[in-house]
Amino acid sequence: MSMTMVLLIVGMAIVTYIPRVLPLTLLEGKELPPFLQSVLRNIPFAVLGALIFPGILLIQEGNLLFGVVGALAAIILALIGANVMIVVLGSIAVLSLYIFFI
C-alpha cells in the first residue's frame, strides 16, 4: 500500500466524518427554536423528493424511457402499499423484463 494512498484515504475519511458527526454531537440535548426544529423535521421528506427527481429518470444515460418505466413501477408498487423491499425488488424485476422483451 503506498503511503500517499493511505494519506489520501485517511484525509478523505476525516473530512467525510466531520459533517456527519458535528451536528449530531454538538446539538445533543440542545433545545432549538421551534421554527428551526420544524425545518429540521421537514428535511427527510424534502431530501427524498430531491434524491428521487431528477435522478430516477436519468439512471440510463440517453434513455429517458428506461428511467420512466422504472419510476412508474416503483411509484405504482408504493401506491398500492407494498413494503419497501417489494418496491425495490419489483422495480428491478420490471426493468429486467423490459430489457429482455423490448
Partner: peptide
Amino acid sequence: AAMSIALYAMFVGL
C-alpha cells in the same frame, strides 16, 4: 442496468 433503479425505488417506497 435493472438494479440501478434499486436505491431510487427505495426512496419512493420510503
